[in-house]
């Protein structure tokens, strides 16, 4: 059982962090970032070619974290690999000691720096979760030449996660999809960034009313200032920074930005703590804030 699974199963309010692999092979920063937050979180997500910007992969960096004694959450997007490669990478992950996987659709290639690439999406995130579940059962998505399910030589076992966007303007559709993700095998969920505790409460009430019982970790992207908050409001679907928070950020002196980011994140987590089972903190490079946020939110 992964530490993440244990922690959630034990009912502890659980923290995860996140690192983004570099564009290139210099592991310095990413390993340093992980080292800085590792004692304050149970596991660290490794993003997978995030926003479709080509870079070092999630699998390699997740394996490096395992080597360094840090527990990773291996993020997998559906954009870049067909079902053969996705299933194979799940097996790869397992033999490399990775136990937490997170299934994500993935931003379209037009959002990134290889806009002329062919997007794959052979599986969607629900089908990817199902594929992982099938692998765990000792089989795979294919068939042998007689049409019978294939047999694996040794089956993997994962703690399988999914994502959801609680502040989407299509939240009902998001919840319907979340139900399918759970049915397909999702055992935990990390959300897209939430800055509105009231909206999150509404979302969580609806989730529990539908009897979706997996642990849900609220997502917090560390707000690095007013500019970023504005950008998110305008450009990131399903992320809403409410007006009072915008005002608070606009009144923050420049040299206090980081302090404010910690304060806001911790406050949000404290507000939402009673509603969910953990928080997933995405520092976007401000790795040193993670520990401070965890401490302030736990105080």
């Amino acid at each position: 059982m992964s530490k993440l699974e244990q922690s959630l199963a034990a009912g502890h309010f659980t923290f995860t962090g996140e690192v983004g692999p570099p564009k290139g092979v210099d592991l310095h920063h990413v390993m340093e970032g992980a080292a800085v937050m590792k004692d304050k979180v149970v596991a660290i997500n490794v993003t997978d070619i995030q926003t479709a910007v080509m870079r070092l992969g999630s699998l390699a960096v997740s394996a490096k974290l395992v080597e360094a004694g840090v527990e990773p959450v291996f993020q997998m997007v559906c954009r870049d690999r067909n079902r053969l490669a996705l299933q194979s990478d799940l097996l790869n992950a397992y033999v490399l000691g990775i136990r937490n996987v997170l299934a994500i659709t993935g931003d379209h290639v037009v959002k990134g720096d290889h806009r002329d690439a062919k997007p794959v999406y052979d599986l969607d995130s629900v089908q990817l979760l199902k594929a992982a579940t099938i692998l765990e059962s000792g089989s795979d998505m294919g068939k042998d030449f007689k049409g019978r399910p294939n047999k694996l030589e040794g089956a993997p076992k994962f703690f399988k996660g999914c994502v959801v966007t609680p502040c989407s303007d299509m939240v009902e559709a998001q919840i319907l999809k979340l139900e399918k993700k759970v049915a397909a095998g999702a055992q935990f969920c990390q959300t897209q960034a939430v800055y509105d505790a009231a909206a999150f409460e509404k979302f969580m009430n609806e989730v529990r009313r539908r009897n979706i019982q997996i642990p849900i970790m609220v997502g917090i992207v560390v707000l690095k200032g007013l500019g970023m908050a504005k950008y998110m409001n305008e450009n990131v679907p399903g992320v809403v920074v409410p007006e009072p928070l915008m005002k608070e950020l606009s009144e923050t002196p420049k040299d206090q930005t980081k302090k404010k980011a910690v304060e806001v994140s911790a406050r949000l987590i404290k507000q939402m703590k009673p509603m969910c089972q953990g928080a997933h903190i995405m520092p976007l490079g401000w790795d040193d804030t993670v520990g401070q946020i965890v401490d302030a939110a736990s105080a």
Binding site: S125, A173, P237
Partner: peptide, 17 residues
């Protein structure tokens, strides 16, 4: 993205990401 099991998180105001 040719998704068969519901929308991704990229939908906003009825439009695609």
């Amino acid at each position: 993205k040719g998704l068969l099991n519901g929308p991704c998180g990229g939908s906003k105001g009825g439009k695609c990401e």
